[in-house]
Design a protein around this nucleic acid. Structure first.
Lengths: 199, 199
DNA sequence: CGTACACTTGAGTAGGATCAATTGAAGTGG
DNA sequence: CCACTTCAATTGATCCTACTCAAGTGTACG
């Protein structure tokens, strides 16, 4: 979809669907950085710095609202409220990256998996991202590349969550059965209820 | 220094010194998120969202420029250029987090260590952060908590880098002997030269 | 001189990686 | 309708990276 190093990228707002940002190393190792849901911005780095250092892909059909990157300066000049909201959204994304970093750096495999699934589920609670509202349209390869684990070990870890009746893997996607138990297992407390600006 | 959940936090600009942002889990596991050097912002999340979800600590004496968080709205209204620069800095910090996430998720221990040290060294190249300009004032415990490794394994990994004559650990800090070799070892290419606004 | 902190090293273990198959569902083309 | 391919999920076996436990060294400081 959108690839790293793209100079002519625009700024987008996600209106519908699910996608993700990722980075690749030259030898093919992939790390998924975060997931993109309605309300998120895509391409802010590219708009500000002229080049995106990550790539973006869709997991389900996405509806985006396009914004010309050249207009960003104009927006900052004429619509300070919107400019503030953009910074707010960027800052919240950084907050999510922080938690993600804690997860990959310090949580065990099963904690990581539980955290990731609970987190996406919580974020997707109010918006529909997949074909059914209960299902998250991701493959185990995506989970592996998000958690920094191998595909095989990710599979075995997800099986453990399934055996505990916390999730079910069905129709090429993940259904959450018990989000509270997932959060507890991940030792994760909040998804703080913040007033979110609509851009 | 500044702790998580702080509501009355201000926004700061680092003028001098070295610090870091980190998160703790309830059982004490610590993950260092990134390092703060001159030109970086501290507390943007707190200013925008009312609460910081991470803590901050100094590694060397730091000189900060304080900014009242209540004035942020005013700044966005009256100084769109500065508002733009703040977003730029926030976005660059996110970019650094992205690379960090790739590192922890997909690089091996020695690659991670090489990347981290090369990265901090490269960022600190133009500004003095420790007592001598060559030395990075961090302990191996900090490195461990940044890389998501145990202290013991971090020590053994750093020894390997020292045996290869890439670094020297001296006077409770790290000196870089061959940054190019570190970058090559980490399979890390760029620290792109971006025009950086001064805030 | 005793304590504290950072760094170091060795031994044994475990969590996760790699390798190698297998299953099953969903196309696709004849 | 049936071979053929492809992709995702699954499982077992083996290996190795990184963890834990347990000391020990060196230096700074009161």
């Amino acid at each position: 979809m959108l690839v790293e190093g793209n100079h002519s990228a625009h700024l987008y707002t996600v209106l519908f669907g699910l996608g993700f940002r990722y980075k690749l190393m030259v030898d093919g190792r992939r790390q998924i950085l975060n997931y993109l849901l309605p309300g998120d911005l895509i391409g802010l780095q590219g708009s500000l710095m002229g080049e995106m250092q990550h790539s973006v892909e869709a997991l389900s059909p996405m509806l985006l609202c396009v914004f010309e990157r050249e207009q960003l300066h104009t927006l900052y000049r004429n619509h300070p409220g919107l400019a503030y909201d953009i910074t707010w959204i960027a800052s919240r994304e950084e907050q999510m990256l922080d938690e993600n970093l804690l997860s990959i750096g310090r949580r065990t495999a099963i904690e990581r998996a539980a955290y990731l699934i609970a987190f996406i589920r919580a974020r997707a609670a109010k918006v529909q991202v997949g074909r059914s509202s209960a299902q998250l349209p991701i493959t185990q390869q995506h989970v592996a590349d998000t958690l920094g684990l191998s595909l095989v070990h990710t599979n075995k870890t997800l099986r453990k969550l399934a055996e505990k009746k916390l999730i079910v893997w069905r129709d090429g996607g993940c259904e959450v059965l018990d989000i509270d138990a997932l959060m507890k297992l991940a030792r994760w407390e909040r998804l703080q209820e913040t007033l979110r600006p609509l851009v």
